[in-house]
């Protein structure tokens, strides 16, 4: 039996699972928007703007979910500053939850700046102060913001899996592939969300085709990383002989990866399934581990 079976479950459930999902999706959407902002054409701008919007909303929502999940929500700032020595910064480079707190804050800042810049570009900002901020984020500065934000976006999408691996919990700490898996899933769900939202923002057919082809490639990569994740678990795979194994097989692999790959000709339908699969991936990996309780293992139950 793996030594991870003797640890305690952290109860990361109904706020953290949506956070992992939304954070990954937002990070993936921003990354794709940044790629198009840097290397795309003017006709790709609607997708870029939609990506910034998804990222900004997702980052704010993620921060709220994280805060609400705390046992003492009003002390959320203790992760950023030393509570007894304010304003000295609280940061541990070797602790994913510590650098993740900073990453989500900075990602939120960059994605909101980008979203404001994009809205100012469209002339959709009514508030004078926001219009002034959005007006500054243009040209070279906008590219710089999107470049740094894109890196932060991928960081947010992937660090959640790294955070789980840097524990002593079953499944999470038994494989080094969880960070990569969550990151690739974040990219595929980010692309799926943009496939659904970008047409409403006037996206060109060429941009949507690019998103769709990227999503297909990301899904193939996700399948590969998922296989490596399962192989690396070895004997731990017996935990999947449960309801969560069924969710992983049918929901994630079947509905979330294979079905969208088959539905390549129907991008919107495929995108909805990708979004479902991404959520089920977090749900299954989180709750399969959460359900393993130390005293039951010790008692041989």
């Amino acid at each position: 039996m793996s030594d991870t079976f003797f640890s305690g479950a952290p109860h990361w459930t109904w706020f953290i699972i949506p956070y992992f999902y939304v954070g990954g999706l937002a990070g993936g959407a921003y990354f794709l928007a940044a790629i198009l902002a840097w290397f795309g054409k003017p006709e790709d701008r609607p997708v870029v703007r939609a990506g910034y919007d998804v990222a900004a909303v997702g980052a704010i929502f993620s921060g709220l979910l994280l805060t609400v999940d705390l046992g003492q929500p009003l002390r959320f700032w203790h992760m950023l500053f030393q509570s007894e020595n304010f304003p000295a910064v609280m940061f541990k480079a070797w602790s994913p939850i510590s650098f993740g707190a900073w990453a989500i804050l900075l990602f939120g800042l960059f994605s909101v700046l980008s979203a404001l810049g994009a809205r100012a570009e469209e002339g959709r900002l009514q508030n004078a102060a926001l219009r002034a901020v959005g007006g500054v984020v243009r040209g070279g500065l906008a590219k710089l913001v999107s470049g740094v934000g894109g890196i932060l976006g991928f960081f947010v999408a992937g660090y959640t899996g790294v955070l789980l691996s840097v524990t002593n919990r079953p499944i999470w700490a038994d494989s080094p592939w969880l960070g990569a898996l969550f990151l690739v899933s974040g990219a595929s769900t980010g692309a799926a969300m943009l496939i659904l939202l970008a047409p409403g923002r006037g996206a060109a057919q060429r941009s949507l085709e690019w998103l769709s082809s990227f999503d297909t490639r990301a899904l193939v990569l996700e399948l590969l990383v998922l296989a490596l994740f399962l192989i690396s678990l070895g004997s731990i795979n017996r935990v999947w002989l449960s309801f969560w194994g069924l969710v992983l097989l049918v929901g994630v692999v079947g509905a979330g990866i294979l079905a969208p790959l088959r539905l390549h000709a129907k991008p919107a339908q495929a995108a909805r399934l990708v979004l479902l699969g991404g959520f089920l991936l977090r749900l299954a990996t989180m709750l399969a581990s959460e359900g393993i309780d130390r005293y039951r293992v010790a008692a041989g139950m």
Partner: peptide
């Protein structure tokens, strides 16, 4: 100082730590 993020619970190899529901830490 603790804000109840629960990272320590998952990090402990012995399953020693948990949240005190009264303090939320």
């Amino acid at each position: 100082v603790c804000n109840g993020c629960r990272a320590c619970i998952a990090a402990c190899p012995f399953g020693v730590i948990d949240i005190n529901p009264v303090s939320g830490t």
